[in-house]
Amino acid sequence: MFSQLTDLDLRLIRVFLAIVDAGGVTPAQATLNVGQSTISTQLATLETRLGYRLCERGRSGFSLTARGAQFVDAARTLLSAIDTFGMQARNVGRKLVGTLGIGMIGHTPVAASARISEAIRRFRTRDESVRFSILVRSPGELEELLLSERIQVGIGYFWHRVPSLEYTEIFAEDQLAYCAKDHPLFAQAGNVTPADAAQHEWAWRSYPLPEAGSSTTPHNVTAVADNMEAVAMLVLSGCHLGYLPEHYAARYLKEGLLAALNPEQMRYRVAFHMVTRARQHRTDIVEAFIDDMQAAHSSRGEEESHTPVSR
Rank of each mutant, 00 (worst) to 15 (best):
T307Y: 08
E302G: 12
G101A: 11
A198D: 14
L78T: 00
D83G: 12
L261A: 03
M293G: 00
R67P: 03
Y167D: 06
T307M: 09
V286Q: 09
V286W: 01
M233G: 12
K254T: 13
G58S: 11
L64F: 04
G103E: 02
S37Q: 11
T38D: 13
G35L: 09
T217L: 07
D7S: 13
A74W: 08
M274L: 15
F186H: 08
L142P: 01
F186I: 05
A197Q: 02
I155W: 01
F123R: 02
E255A: 15
M104T: 08
L50I: 06
L78A: 00
V221R: 00
Q36F: 09
G140Y: 07
C55E: 00
T45G: 05
E287P: 04
R57Q: 10
K181G: 02
E211Y: 05
Q265A: 15
Q199V: 12
M1C: 10
Q152K: 07
A198M: 11
S164F: 13
F71W: 06
V270K: 04
D196L: 13
D182R: 14
E141L: 02
T41E: 11
S80M: 09
V153Y: 02
A18K: 10
A249I: 04
I116H: 00
E201Q: 15
L257M: 14
R311Q: 13
R311A: 11
A230R: 09
F186Y: 15
A75F: 04
I120S: 06
F171C: 06
R67N: 10
G23S: 06
L236N: 03
L10G: 01
A74I: 08
R269V: 14
L78K: 03
A81V: 03
